[in-house]
Design a binder for these strands. Structure first.
Length: 444
DNA sequence: GGGGGAATAT
DNA sequence: CATATTCCCC
């Protein structure tokens, strides 16, 4: 029995708990990864390996097509960057996803809606934003299963050992993947946020996977997030007005008022990526951080008088030792200065093509600097911030965790060290984690 | 009575 | 916590 058949059969058996299914299914599924950025490619491969997928990687779109045309059956699913050097990434998506009818997932540096929807039109079944997260990657097997079940239904050829009455994935708890959510948001926008009703959204989305009720539930969550954001925007607007009137009256309070603090934080937000975190957690999350901020009265005053660059304040806040590296792993240094190159010798996946022609991050640090995955963060933030439309809080809540590309891997490794050593090659990942979490990270 | 949305359950 | 289910209202 092939792997896929095995997956299919065990899916239709029993009705195991979802977590168990997630943990077991990716075993051995074969993934082809395509990205012309070799560093990104290796990071993706490392994460996939962590999830026990079998990985083949290439930096060339044309190479990928050649491989697939030759033996498509050897691969269960393809993940490809949409910006490729040697051919149009969307064309590649279309050939793989529509023409060859393989499950294909797009990858990009940001979650620009147009880009994602374009991907959908060209056959992408999901999308991953760099730097990719283990949580998102580990579920990609579902696309393989969905396709199998879809074909089975379509051609009426249920495989042996299956039972039509047993639960299929659509009856299980829906997972709102980035792609589903994107389609959801698109539908809502199409209808208008106020006019959007579950039934209409459901019809526009046209996703057999999800029910009208699921959409209703998701819409509720979505609207709550929007409300929360509006409330927050209103509050910071009010505080801004307050501080302005204080200034004109010449009544500069020597105590740290809420409005002062809010203004300070607003200023900070314009200068650093923590603004994203705020969006997801709301005002209340400021509370704990404000303690630290408020403790520094002199900084607050200086900030109030615009004499202290916000960046400095932020550094002081986050370098007080109050936040340990585990819960506050982001130093600005991580994003502004590439770490020393990790050892590329231990690569836990099969790399196709001529390696000597590929970008070597050690010998070409300058060209690498523009391509490093962790430097996409700034662009992501700018992208989100520049949008006029209501900010997509739900997506943002997920986005926050992208700040530190390897925190999830680190967590995974930590927990796995406590349990067993059944995982595959950890070398690359541990090296990365070491590099990224070390205290020697350069400071601004 | 079907559907929307808040509340509540899992 | 995210998603599902229930409940109440129109």
């Amino acid at each position: 029995m092939s792997k896929i058949e095995a997956v299919h059969v065990s899916l239709n058996r029993a009705a195991p708990r979802q977590s168990r299914v997630n943990a077991n299914f990716p075993e051995g599924l074969s993934v082809l990864v395509v990205d012309d950025n070799v560093v990104c490619l290796k990071v993706v491969a490392a994460v996939l390996n962590k999830c026990r997928y079998k990985v083949t990687a290439t930096t060339k779109a044309t190479e990928a097509l050649k491989i697939l045309r030759k033996n498509k059956k050897s691969y269960d699913i393809v993940i490809t960057d949409v910006i490729m050097l040697d051919m149009n990434g969307f064309e590649l998506l279309e050939i793989i996803g529509l023409e060859m009818d393989m499950p294909v997932i797009m990858m990009s540096a940001n979650d620009d809606k147009e880009l994602v929807m374009k991907g959908v039109r060209h056959g992408a079944r999901d999308y991953l934003i760099k730097p990719i997260r283990l949580e998102e990657v580990k579920n990609i097997w579902q696309h393989v299963v969905r396709k199998i079940l879809f074909n089975a239904t379509k051609f009426g050829t249920m495989q042996a050992g299956t039972d039509q009455n047993l639960p299929i994935p659509s009856s299980k708890r829906v997972s709102w993947t980035a792609m589903l959510h994107s389609k959801f948001v698109d539908a809502v926008r199409q209808l208008g946020v106020d006019k959007a009703a579950p039934k209409k959204i459901f019809e526009i989305m046209n996703e057999p996977e999800i029910s009208r009720r699921s959409v209703a539930s998701h819409l509720q969550k979505y609207r709550n997030a929007l409300r929360k954001e509006n409330t927050k925007a209103k509050m910071s607007q009010e505080s801004e007005n307050n501080i302005n009137s204080n200034k004109t009256n010449g009544l500069l309070s020597n105590t740290i008022t809420t409005s002062c603090i809010n203004q300070g934080l607003n200023t900070i937000n314009h200068h650093n990526i923590f603004a994203e975190q705020d969006m997801s957690t709301g005002i209340t999350s400021f509370g704990s951080q404000l303690q630290t901020f408020g403790a520094s009265t002199s900084n607050a005053k200086l900030l109030q008088q615009n004499q202290l660059p916000p960046k400095v304040v932020v550094d002081q806040i986050f370098n007080t030792g109050q936040f340990g590296p585990s819960n506050m792993p982001v130093g600005f240094g991580h994003y502004s200065c590439p770490p020393t190159p990790f050892n590329l010798a231990s690569v836990p996946f099969q790399m196709l093509g001529d390696a000597s022609n590929q970008l070597n991050p050690i010998s070409q640090p300058d060209s690498l600097a523009t391509l490093l995955p962790w430097q996409h963060e700034g662009r992501n933030v700018a992208n989100l911030k520049s949008k006029e439309e209501p900010i997509d809080s739900i997506r943002k809540a997920q986005f926050v965790r992208h700040r530190y590309p390897f925190e999830n891997i680190e967590r995974q490794i930590n927990s796995h060290h406590n349990n067993s050593n059944s995982f595959l090659d950890d070398d690359l990942v541990s090296i990365m984690v070491k590099q990224f979490s070390s205290n020697s990270a350069p400071k601004l």
